[in-house]
Design a protein around this nucleic acid. Structure first.
Lengths: 158, 158
DNA sequence: TTTTACGTAACAAATATAGTTACATTAAAA
DNA sequence: TTTTAATGTAACTATATTTGTTACGTAAAA
């Protein structure tokens, strides 16, 4: 089964936005993400409803993060994405009439529930500020001299 | 994202097979699972390659579990299904050139890896024998009298 | 030799996701 | 005030995945 990379993608977008003081247009972000501006606007519209980002129309408009980075957890972003499915597996039927299926569901649900809880707990404990700090450390480790806004190496895919 | 229910479905099928001494045909199993016999044969063919079930052609043929239930863990079945994706989320790109994406991947991969490890560990510790025992307890709890092969209640979806 | 069942390829249908086009709306700049 | 640059959003298209179906070959028992 194919994995949903929206959370990964949104985090990427947000961290780039955090590096820039001015609003970034959906077109610029789409170029970074090798996708379409409408796709960017669609997903960021969800974050805006949750107060994580702000958008401005017209000349000089675009998207900005509108809360302190250390107040935005991965869980906040996960919720703003409408809490997408975490696990690629599930039970065939909930509340089955068949007792065999009930026994199967019971065993699997325990494992599934615990794995989901673990993921959500991790999401709660990681903030955008931490990811940003990690990024800046990586930049230094890769030989950032102070003259480049980003890595001295050509960047692929954003 | 839609969840893959093949593991759940295969467990259901196997536990029903465990209740019967004779081979079960793909047609009978397909009726229970409300699907097509070819779909059953496709998925059970994978289990056969791993030595979990045996099939016989011709009159009186069909499918049977061919190992002791307490030697078959959920992990064995998971592997026989070709280790399907466990998590519905993933990173946009592995080995990214962009340092922002590297920071994102690093944070998410830790969480993803731990959640996967938890699931696999659970799969290793649960056997078909345990599920079968759980099923028989449920049957008793639902008023099994000794005269019925299965529940006295009409079974839905298998 | 007929019937029953698996084995498997090829095709069709359904689903989900992502991408695209088009145009209305808003706001700044000329 | 007109032009330009941006978001907002609906509708459509394309693509990929999964599931279901048909068809027919093979094997084994009755």
């Amino acid at each position: 089964m194919k994995r949903d990379s929206r959370l990964s993608g949104v985090l990427h977008v947000l961290l780039h936005m955090a590096e820039v003081d001015a609003p970034m247009t959906s077109e610029a972000l789409a170029n970074m993400m090798k996708t379409n501006p409408v796709v960017i606007r669609r997903v960021l519209a969800g974050l805006r409803e949750h107060g994580l980002v702000c958008s401005a129309k017209g000349h000089g408009g675009g998207w900005q993060i509108c809360r302190a980075l250390d107040t935005i957890s991965l869980h906040d972003i996960y919720r703003a994405l409408d809490e997408p499915t975490l696990l690629a597996m599930g039970n065939r039927t909930e509340s089955p009439g068949c007792l065999v299926e009930a026994a199967v569901n019971n065993a699997l649900n325990q494992a599934f529930h615990d794995a989901e809880a673990l993921l959500l707990e991790r999401f709660r404990t990681v903030t955008l500020a931490q990811l940003s700090a990690d990024f800046h450390q990586r930049k230094i480790a890769h030989g950032f001299s102070g003259h480049h806004e980003h890595s001295i190496f050509p960047e692929q895919e954003g």
